[in-house]
Structure formats: structure tokens, C-alpha cells
Design a protein around this nucleic acid. Structure first.
Length: 595
RNA sequence: GGUGGCAUAGCUCAGCUGGAUAGAGCACCUGCCUUCUAAGCAGGCGGUCCUAGGUUCGAAUCCUAGUGCCAUCACCA
């Protein structure tokens, strides 16, 4: 049981007995490091109910608690802050209770209602870049955190496999491809297709320039360039089901999927269900017809269908074109409904999409609510800031992107260089080393991205590589490895870790701090889930590791003469490493036995 | 112009529902490897919490106005 829960009632009781007043609530905070104590009761808010000097009130409540509550062994009052020293017994009891719990902090029984988490959702005309990495890591991690908080989770993505952008790559490949394939070039499929997307843009710009020279207005030229017109024709053919276009489309998308699969595998993310835009882009039209009948939407004279959101402070939004074709919004409405049909237990959805689409999702959610779906109350746009380079925004067409595959390779080789310099891995085989380098490199990258609050934008400077020291993934992995080393030695020297510490024992201050930090893990997971924020997990694990390293430095673990104390320290170390492991698992980061 | 987000140390970031002297890491400077892995630990240097008002016993945190950066406001996706 949480110490605050115990104290809350006792403080209220104290106030009732001493001052004959009822407190609506008690405000607690962890005692700051510079003061003696573990939990602090803030006296100021009580002044509304109890008249008097805050210091005296604090003294009186403190005396009461020390006398009446076993867990409170001492107290002191500074200004209006009542600092309570919680007894070692309490912490020892707590630790004895959780030390052998294998899934400590995780809520393993899942709720009856499920949540679907969508992330990645790339276009199939170009390779994944750093922006997708942030998206993937965030989506994956939030899905894992929701699971750990007790939710059932489906991971999904919608693949934008149709549209003019695909046709551009296809057309360029037809024209300039010379039959290139991933097989005959050795290029990854998504890279190959991406090259033709760039090739299209180049040809397109050249045509515009030529037309401008011939006296055509630049805007006009941009609309009328023959290669663009041809791409548009290709899209029409695709929509008409033209055999040649369809088979080319299938072939090139197949290349891209194979490439993506490899990237996802390297990144360590996965999906339970895939949706393809080519299957879903016609969805939603019936719903619009329905909504028209209900009066949620209205039709303009030209036949286009709209929703009026001016009452909600937004504007009017189109949901169906005048020619009856679907827009992005139509499709998203349809897809959401389809998902609930596919998985009837879904009571909420999380969309991992960049903050440039904040407005779109605001409107989408509002429409779904107006259509009366109960699950529409539980939709969340996991909006995150862009990853920008010092030079500005990344643009695929202009080649100013940090490629996902390249970056992961870079991270791994940096990890290798650092590791070789330190030279601690003599007994490792070549294969084991490769696994470790990747683990550390990816750990650095994932932690670097996930420790930042999702809604803040990230400035990524490729010139300055991601750190491996300080507040970083490798720092935490290193601490884990160090603990594993201790645990191996403890096993060799037959330290009995099954013993339970006597509740009358005294704790070293560092031991106490560690237990306090371990105690926070379960609530941190819940907080991270409620806020859709892996950053909270990252920061928590960092604090835990800082605390452990300080403990490690100050007290001897295996050198401790007292067998009971030694056992406790080994147990504490083991628990810390377990929490690191589960915390990092929620971030999609693996931990090594040695490094 | 309307709307939304962000602004904290030279740099990268924490700071939960308002609470004590605003915290980490990097960088720079000192110490600590004959003792459990120095990718570590201990310490130093470094702050107009964007600005101005307001609410409060108390504001980096809440409110208002302004400034700067980003996004968005298409019968594009």
C-alpha cells in the first residue's frame, strides 16, 4: 500500500482531533533532498480550514503522527512544510512484498475494452526517413505502455498505396527505368522506387523550365506539364482497373513492402493488422449519405457535401466532392468505422500522426461524435512535433532527408567504434558483438528520440552524432550490464537471494532511496499511459539508474560482511535491473548482459 | 489575418495536479580505477524560466495582452 494513502486518513484524523476541523484533502510531495524526511505534508492549504500559524499546526500534526502512526518515525517542520521520516520497516515490508514479483509494475490482466493504435502509415513511393522513425518509435512505445497499463491493444497502420504520388514513381520507372529491379540492382525496393519519385520530380521541373522559356506562365506550366498530365491519366486508369497499370502498381508496391519490412524489423516495430488505402478509399460514402439524412451534413448546389462546424469554432469542411468522389476525410470516417466492425471490442483509437494534421483530426473526431458513435469519445490524436534538420524541414523530393536505414547503420557503427575503444568484450564471439553493437546503437537512437516530450519538435543535427554518455540509452544499458555482472558473481559465490530481510533491520540511506524510486514504477506506467508519453518512462528509468549508480559507488554490494545486508543489496540490484528491463521494453529498447 | 502548438543554463532537455534555495546531461574545470564493468561516481562553473500585467499566503506552472519560431486554415493527401 502506498504510504500517502495511509497518511492521508491519518492527517485528516489528526486535524479533526486537534483542531476539530475537516480537511477536504491533503497535499503531499516527496521531501526535497536538502531536508530530512521522505514525505512532506504541505500545511498551507489547511489554513483555509484551520486558523493559526502554519509552523505550529505542522508541529502539532507531526507529534500526533509520530505517536499514532507506526510508519512515521520522526518529523520536522520547515516553514509550512511538515517533513515526515518514514520508518525503514515500511520500506523493508514493501520491498519484501515485491522483490520476487516477476511482472512488477505491469498490469497483466487486460481490460475487456481494447484500443487500436495506428502508427507509421507511410506512402509507398519513397523510403522511410527520420520523421517516420519518430512516428514508429512513438506509436510502438505508446502501444506497449497502454498494454502495460492494462489495456488490450491492436497495433495497426494504414498504407497509402494509391494516389498521384505513386503514379509519379511508376511513370518515371516506365520511362527511365530500363527494367531496373531490386534483384538486378541490389537496391532495397523502397530505395529503388524512391529514386524514381525523385527522377519524376526532376523531369517535371525540367519540363516546366522549358515551357517557361517558351513563354508559358509558370503557374500554368506547373499544371500543364506533359509528364504530370500523363501521371494523372495513369491514376485514372488505375481507378478504372486498367490491367497494365494495376500490375505495374502491384509489382512496384511489392518491392516497397519488402523494403519496409526490412526497415521495420531493424527498428523493432510490428503490427497486428494492416489496412491499405486502396481497400479503404471508397469507404465512408455510405456514412456520408446516412449523415445527410440525419442532417449532420448538408449538400451544396453543386452536389458537394459539407459539414458546418462554425458553432464549434471551426469552419465548414467538405466531406464529399461534387463529382461524388471521396476526399481524405471521407476515407478516414469510413476507415474508423470499418475498424470497429473488424474489432468490435475497440472502444478507443490512437492516431500517431504529426502535428501538422492537428486540425484534420480535430474535425474527424468531431464528425464521428456528431454521427453518434459511442467510441468517438475515446479517440486520441497522438500528435508529435516534426523532426527538423539545422537546414530546415526534411524534403524527400529535394533529397534533404535523413534516411532511416542509413541512420540505423550509422548508429550501430558508432556503437562498434566506442565499444572497440573500450575493449571489454574479449570473450564475445563476432556474432554476439554484432548483436550488441546494434542493441547499443539502437538504444542510443530510440532513447534520444523518446526521452523528448512528444509534442515538442526535435532538431536533429546529423553532424553531431547522438550521445552515448550521460542521459542516454547506452548509459542505462551499461548500468543494466553492470548489475548483471554482479548477479553472475553473486550466483558464483552462492549469495542466498531467497532470504527475506528482517523488518527490524536498518536501511542505508541509499538503499532507502532506491526502494522509494522502485516504488514509483507502477504509477509512472499509469501516468505515461494516461498522457501517451514514453518520455515519462524514459525519465523515470534515468532517475532510477542515477540513484543506483550513486548507491553502487557508495556502498559495497558483494563486499558486505553481513550476509543479510549483502542479500538485500543483491536483491535490490536485481530488482533495479528488472525495472530497467521492463521500462526499456516499453520503449522498445533491449538490454545487454555485458557491454 | 483566424486558429493551434512551442519558448527554462552556451547546447540538448526534465520540472506530475501551483509549493521550500528551478534540476539533469553535453561542453569547460577539479578529484576518484591494486576493491562489484570509469559508457561510471563526487564536486565546480553556468539562469531576466521570452516580455509586461493579473490571480494567490506562494507562479517556470494558472489567467490576460504582447513578442518570436513552427504548423494549419484546398472539391491535396
Amino acid at each position: 500500500m502506498n504510504i500517502q494513502a495511509i497518511l492521508e486518513n491519518k492527517v485528516k484524523e489528526a486535524v479533526l482531533k486537534i483542531f476539530n476541523a475537516e480537511l477536504p484533502s491533503v497535499e503531499f510531495q516527496p521531501t526535497r533532498k536538502d531536508f530530512e524526511g521522505d514525505v512532506t505534508v504541505v500545511v498551507f492549504p489547511m489554513l483555509r480550514v484551520v486558523k493559526g500559524n502554519p509552523v505550529q499546526i505542522g508541529e502539532q500534526i507531526g507529534t500526533f503522527l509520530k505517536d499514532e502512526v507506526a510508519e512515521v518515525s520522526d518529523f520536522n517542520v520547515v516553514k509550512g512544510f511538515l517533513n515526515l521520516v518514514v520508518s525503514d520497516t515500511f520500506y523493508i515490508n514493501f520491498f519484501n512484498g515485491i522483490k520476487d514479483e516477476s511482472n512488477y509494475g505491469l498490469v497483466t490482466e487486460s481490460a475487456s475494452d481494447a484500443v487500436m493504435v495506428e502508427y507509421s502509415s507511410p506512402n509507398t513511393n519513397k523510403p522511410l526517413h527520420l520523421g517516420h522513425i519518430r512516428n514508429n518509435l512513438l506509436g510502438y512505445s505508446v502501444a506497449e505502455i497502454l498494454k502495460a497499463s492494462g489495456k488490450k491493444v491492436y497495433k495497426t497502420q494504414i498504407i497509402n498505396d494509391r494516389g498521384i504520388h505513386i503514379c509519379k514513381s511508376m511513370l518515371a520507372w516506365q520511362r527511365f527505368g530500363n527494367g531496373e529491379t531490386p534483384e538486378n540492382t541490389g537496391l532495397k525496393g523502397d530505395k529503388l522506387v524512391g529514386n524514381y519519385y525523385v527522377a519524376f520530380d526532376k523531369a517535371y521541373k525540367a519540363e516546366i523550365a522549358e515551357m517557361v522559356v517558351d513563354g508559358v506562365d509558370e503557374k500554368e506550366a506547373a499544371k500543364e506539364a506533359p509528364i504530370l498530365l500523363e501521371a494523372q491519366q495513369m491514376l485514372q486508369k488505375w481507378e478504372a482497373g486498367d490491367e497494365e497499370v494495376t500490375s505495374l502498381w502491384k509489382k512496384m508496391n511489392g518491392w516497397v513492402y519488402k523494403g519496409f519490412e526490412e526497415t521495420y524489423k531493424n527498428m523493432g516495430v510490428d503490427f497486428d493488422k494492416l489496412y491499405y488505402e486502396s481497400d479503404t478509399y471508397l469507404l465512408g460514402k455510405d456514412v456520408v449519405a446516412d449523415g445527410l439524412e440525419k442532417g449532420v451534413f448538408y449538400k451544396k448546389d453543386d452536389g458537394s457535401v459539407w459539414i458546418d462546424l462554425t458553432e464549434e469554432g471551426l469552419d465548414e469542411k467538405i466531406v464529399l466532392r461534387s463529382d461524388g468522389t471521396a476526399v481524405y476525410m471521407t476515407q478516414d470516417i469510413g476507415t474508423a468505422i470499418q475498424r470497429v466492425k473488424d474489432y468490435p471490442d475497440i472502444m478507443g483509437m490512437v492516431y500517431t500522426v504529426g502535428n501538422e494534421q492537428d486540425y484534420h483530426f480535430k474535425v474527424l473526431f468531431l464528425i464521428l461524435k456528431k454521427l453518434g458513435f459511442s467510441w468517438a469519445e475515446q479517440l486520441h490524436h497522438l500528435s508529435y512535433g516534426m523532426v527538423d534538420l539545422p537546414s530546415g524541414k526534411m524534403k524527400s523530393r529535394e533529397g534533404t532527408v535523413v534516411d532511416a536505414d542509413d541512420l540505423m547503420v550509422d548508429m550501430t557503427s558508432t556503437a562498434r567504434e566506442l565499444s572497440e575503444e573500450l575493449g571489454k568484450l574479449e570473450e564475445y564471439s563476432h556474432e554476439e558483438k554484432q548483436v550488441l553493437y546494434k542493441m547499443v546503437g539502437m538504444g542510443a537512437l530510440k532513447y534520444y528520440i523518446l526521452k523528448v516530450d512528444p509534442k515538442k519538435r526535435i532538431l536533429f543535427n546529423p553532424e553531431e552524432s547522438v550521445d552515448f554518455q550521460g542521459n542516454t540509452g547506452p548509459f542505462i544499458q551499461y548500468t543494466y550490464a553492470r548489475i548483471q555482472s554482479i548477479l553472475r558473481k553473486a550466483k558464483d559465490t552462492r549469495v542466498d537471494v531467497s532470504t527475506t530481510l528482517e523488518v527490524t533491520a536498518e536501511l542505508h540511506p541509499k538503499e532507502k532511496e532506491l526502494i522509494k524510486q522502485i516504488q514509483l514504477f507502477p504509477e509512472t506506467i499509469q501516468l505515461a499511459a494516461a498522457n501517451f508519453s514514453p518520455a515519462l518512462i524514459a525519465n523515470y528509468v534515468y532517475d532510477l539508474v542515477k540513484e543506483f549508480n550513486s548507491f553502487y559507488q557508495q556502498v559495497s554490494i558483494l563486499g558486505e560482511a553481513d550476509e543479510q545486508k549483502k542479500a538485500l543489496r543483491v536483491q535490490l540490484s536485481r530488482k533495479v535491473s528488472e525495472v530497467i528491463e521492463s521500462g526499456f521494453k516499453l520503449l522498445g529498447i533491449d538490454v545487454p548482459e555485458r557491454m
